[in-house]
Design a protein around this nucleic acid. Structure first.
Lengths: 358, 358
DNA sequence: GCTGCCCATCGAAATGTTTCGAAGTGGAGG
DNA sequence: CCTCCACTTCGAAACATTTCGATGGGCAGC
């Protein structure tokens, strides 16, 4: 009795159906009642079932073409995702995989057929900034198809491996930086409530403030999408208050840029009158006026790690952890300054990027 | 006893081995002796064994994948290219093509093997902002392999189809806009001399100035790469002159952003003290502070057109023209203002984007 | 209310595939 | 000539998947 792996038989017993039915659930056959399907999926998850490795030489493509990885993501014109894709493709090239652009993930909708993807001969799939708790991805991953998710909006309870950054610590870093510059009235332009990394960054914000014995003013915390326009909207509310903050920690660079622009429109100088710190260090941050101080995520590295994790899954190796987090670090540019702004415009602060601990 | 189909069990009995061994022969496993393998194959043939239909919706192995287009480009983290890729992939999806990310084009070096690409079974290839006069691309295209180049650095004398924008007209548009605001001392931060579209935009600049009977001051024309840092460098030279220009036409948005930042460092306000107009209308332009006035290239449309042209080539249709140009148009945002800057900072100009003719 | 039909659902059994260890083989070393 | 060891070859059993028929509930027709 080695019993090294849970089998369909056990799952079947646990959920009170036959082995055949469990198999059908796994393979998305239609002749299973919805209630039964759910019960079986629950049992599959509880028993931590994972598909047997169908031999490591599986991709079995015919000739010429290299094994292929499918990548799917919501948006092309997004500096964050593009940076991840950059790392991802370079690693794929190094490991001898082709990369094909998968189905477009539209908002909450992920419309693709897990069956088709499994049969298509792809060696694996990588999703970037999508909701990994959604059914198609769960279904795909739970059948043993190699799936890695980078910075999932939500993880849920799936088999798939996910990669992210230390969002909580990053939030702490950002606020500590502002505190060290003397700021006390620090707002947080957070991301959507529904997204997990928003929570982590917000928690970091709270934690750092409490650590500094500063009472948290919940009216200084706003929520918006991770977009420039979202940043514009929340900045309008924050800056037009009678008691505006002296510094804002934005949950991403795009939001930060929106805030910088709204400040400019009000003749509020950044960083002299208002410090703004972003998150991501996408290539937008280094090209703005002023260049953004930001908490950098190692986006290229996250992309590379995604490919390496995927190749492990493909090879059938057991991955030690289902979720990996890479360290963030502070990149100081010109959008933050000491409270009281001694500098004045054009103070010629160095462009050197100081790197702190995450 | 329906016995509609011969099974492995029968074959196994006939050839005197176990079912497992027959399965292995069928699946090309290595752990079967050559003599045994031959005996089993003979038996398989005699019994007219054929694989069971693995469900009717089985698309027969490799044929399942859609025809594939390879795309190659120099740089991921580049707003211009990403926008083109966006249009390109959406069109490919619509036309039923897969898109695979091809070899990375590094600077002047395009290291891929045209032979391998042709043999790989790709339906065609699209290159973005590469030098189409280089040997590998010429070689590929001249052998009849379908190739389309978007915004080639240089075209040379090849067979391949290229797609660009009306760069000359765009240059004229940009300068006419600045002239209409009253500017007379207009600099041009041009792109690299080696790149064809730089020439076209520069020629448009010259043409518009001559048209307005303004003498061209060649010291107001600088060259740099199409980068933010390039823009910073040339801006430093232009702005530190004793007689700085009142407006700059930058050959791309990245250069424009570099100029805006150098101006900020010198407390030169944009647009009150200096008007800056970019080129491309990549997503950087709409996210800067201030948002950039720019000459828009229809990047998405160019990507789509590239795919459509390629599908024509693949279908064997004769393409009427080897080079297509799409119209540019002016997008007015907040980085340009009338000479003499009536407005003052934060003048709350509308965000409306006025669209002019190219 | 009864009958018969349809159809969604499910499982037994047939079938194919993989794992893992047993058996065989050959050669180096004693 | 025997032993040991590494390697090849093979099959029993474990496992997964599919087929196809059984079951039973809903419902129209009578």
């Amino acid at each position: 009795m080695k019993q090294v792996r849970t089998t369909l038989a056990e799952v079947a017993a646990a959920s009170g159906v036959s082995i055949a039915t469990v198999s059908k659930v796994l393979n998305d056959h239609t002749d299973v009642a919805e209630t039964t399907r759910r019960r079986v999926q629950q049992a599959l998850h509880d028993a931590d079932y994972r598909a047997p490795r169908r031999s490591s030489r599986r991709p079995e493509r015919v000739a010429s073409t290299e094994p292929t990885i499918e990548v799917a993501f919501p948006e092309w014109q997004n500096a964050y995702e593009v940076a991840v894709l950059d790392g991802l493709t370079s690693a794929a090239e190094a490991e001898g995989y082709e990369v094909v652009i998968g189905p477009r993930v539209r908002g909450e909708q992920i419309d693709f057929d897990p069956q088709a993807l499994r049969r298509s001969g792809r060696a694996g799939a990588i999703f970037v900034t999508v909701d990994a708790s959604r059914d198609p991805i769960k279904a795909l991953s739970d059948t043993g198809f190699p799936v890695v998710v980078v910075d999932p909006v939500r993880v849920g309870r799936t088999q798939c491996v996910s990669i992210g950054a230390t969002n909580f610590t990053g939030g702490v870093t950002a606020v500590e930086h502002l505190l060290s510059l003397g700021h006390r009235r620090i707002a947080h332009a957070a991301g959507p409530v529904s997204v997990e990394c928003s929570h982590a960054r917000l928690a970091g914000y709270h934690s750092a403030l409490r650590q500094a014995a500063i009472e948290v003013d919940d009216t200084l915390v706003t929520h918006s999408l991770f977009t420039y326009d979202g940043g514009r909207a929340v900045a309008a509310r924050l800056l037009d208050r009678p008691d505006p903050p002296t510094a804002v920690f934005a949950a991403c660079d795009e939001i930060a840029l929106g805030i910088v622009e709204e400040a400019r429109r009000r003749s509020i100088r950044v960083p002299e009158d208002l410090s703004v710190i972003g998150f991501d260090d996408s290539f937008l941050a280094s090209r703005s006026a002023p260049p953004l101080t930001t908490v950098a995520q190692p986006l290229l590295e996250m992309g590379r790690l995604a490919v390496r994790s995927l190749t492990q899954l493909i090879a059938g190796d057991v991955v030690a952890t289902r979720h990996l987090e890479l360290a963030t670090h502070l990149v100081v540019r010109d959008s933050t300054a000491p409270l009281g702004g001694s500098g004045g415009v054009g103070a010629q602060r160095g462009v050197r990027e100081s790197v702190g601990r995450s």
